[in-house]
Simulated assay, not measured.
Amino acid sequence: MRNWKNIEFSSEELGHYSRHLSIPEFGLEGQKKLKAARVLAVGTGGLGAPMLQYLAAAGVGTIGLVDFDKVEASNLHRQVLFGASDVGRSKVAVAKERLREINPHIDIHVHELRLSSENALEVIKDYDVVADGTDNFPTRYLINDACVMLDKPNVHGSIFQFEGQISVFNYVNDKGERGPNYRDLFPEPPPPGLVPSCAEAGVLGVLPGIIGCLQASEVIKVITGIGRPLTGELFLFDAQEFSTRKVKVTKNKDNPLTGENPELTELIDYEAFCGLSSPEEENNESAVPEVTVQEYKAWLDADEDVQLIDVREPHEVEIAEIGGELIPLDAIVDHAGEISRDKKVVVHCRSGQRSADAIRQLQQKYDFDNLYNLKGGILAWSQEIDDSIPQY
């Protein structure tokens, strides 16, 4: 962090931050440290939206935004930076506009990209603190490893349905003692498919607001040195039961980054580490056969005999459905006998990811050669064929 002692404020800034300046433990020194700091937020969605609003309002001098997504209607119940008129727009572009309205005295840098092993070190190196608001394991491990290699604190948050968690990783206290990192808590990622995504499992709309605000609080504590950051502990919150607890996080001697025999000295292929296909692999020759929603509709219009299989969960069918036989993904292999082998079979889900997984399982175990993944799933059907079908 650059020398905060030389920081100056305009009269407008002093008015903006007056309630901070009135706190004896915070005062002008704390506000100078905030203005001198550079914070990188990876993800501007559920967690990033509330966190960024409060970091901007608090006066963090430079905020970096990393995201490659566009605003979708299904974001709006929890991603409070965005409104209905923003659907289809770049998240980072909208976020920059909103944050500048909250606080015109700060600098905002946009990184409209997917963070990867190729660019993470370059993107992160110029920031003082990283705030991880991502929703997938490969990126969480990537951020952790890059922060350890660059000696940056990592304020991590995650959410699932009614539950959230937060911790501060790789933090060095005033005694020079370094705290645990994400790999000390989770040495290995869960098996692919074990933990559903937010889109699949859902999330209570207010939950990311709660956890995102706690992340903002921890970022401010890390920057200013006020209070004790949540290092060496994992804070757990359950909105359904309104319960909280802390879990002790200790260093793991087998940690490949910081253990007794460190062996990880550079960033790796995190998709492969987590047992997932990379975006490139998903597009190569091993990808499953696909049919677009327009092609599938043409088959129906031509009265072709096509079987439609829906691999979503029963509660999703209550929200939106386009017909077909319901066989949830986790039961698809056991119900292979219900799937035709002598005609075209179209498999669909919400977005096309689970249905592709279902086809791979059926191909590998039973050598099906007549299965087609509905590209884009029910979302694409709603967007391109029948807008009366709800998007969720």
Score class of each variant (00 low, 15 high):
Ala302Pro: 08
Glu384Tyr: 13
Gly352Glu: 00
Val129Arg: 00
Val94Arg: 02
Cys198Trp: 10
Ser340Gln: 08
Phe160Asn: 07
Ala287Met: 05
Glu281Asn: 07
Gly376Trp: 05
Ser167Gly: 12
His156Ser: 12
Asp269Val: 02
Leu40Cys: 01
Pro256Gln: 11
Glu325Thr: 12
Thr44Arg: 02
Gly157Arg: 00
Val311Pro: 03
Ile309Pro: 02
Asn3Tyr: 10
Ser355Trp: 01
Met1Val: 04
Val172Lys: 11
Val347Phe: 00
Lys91Tyr: 06
Glu241Asn: 14
Leu194Ala: 13
Ser277Leu: 14
Gly27Ser: 12
Lys5Val: 04
Asn136Leu: 14
Ala57Trp: 10
Leu264Asp: 09
Ile223Ala: 08
Ile359Gly: 02
Asp303Lys: 12
Ser158Glu: 01
Trp4His: 14
Asp174Leu: 07
Gln307Trp: 07
His77Lys: 14
Pro279Gln: 11
Ala49Val: 07
Val345Asn: 01
Trp4Gln: 09
Arg100Tyr: 11
Val306Ser: 09
Val168Trp: 04
Arg341Ser: 05
Tyr372Leu: 10
Lys32Ile: 11
Pro191Thr: 06
Val66Arg: 01
Pro191Phe: 12
Val94Ile: 08
Pro256Trp: 11
Glu29Ala: 15
Asp387Tyr: 10
Tyr17Phe: 13
Ala58Cys: 03
Val60Pro: 03
Asp269Ile: 04
Val222Ile: 11
Glu13Gly: 12
Arg183Asn: 07
Leu207Tyr: 04
Leu264Ser: 15
Ala358Trp: 02
Arg78Trp: 08
Arg100Trp: 09
Gly15Glu: 13
Glu72Ser: 05
Ile309Met: 01
Asp132Ile: 06
Tyr141Glu: 02
Gln307Glu: 07
Lys33Phe: 10
Val203Ile: 15
Gly209Met: 00
Gln31Cys: 15
Ser382Tyr: 10
Lys5Ile: 01
Glu122Leu: 09
Leu214Ile: 09
Asp184Trp: 10
Ile309Glu: 05
Thr134His: 13
Thr224Val: 09
Thr244Asn: 11
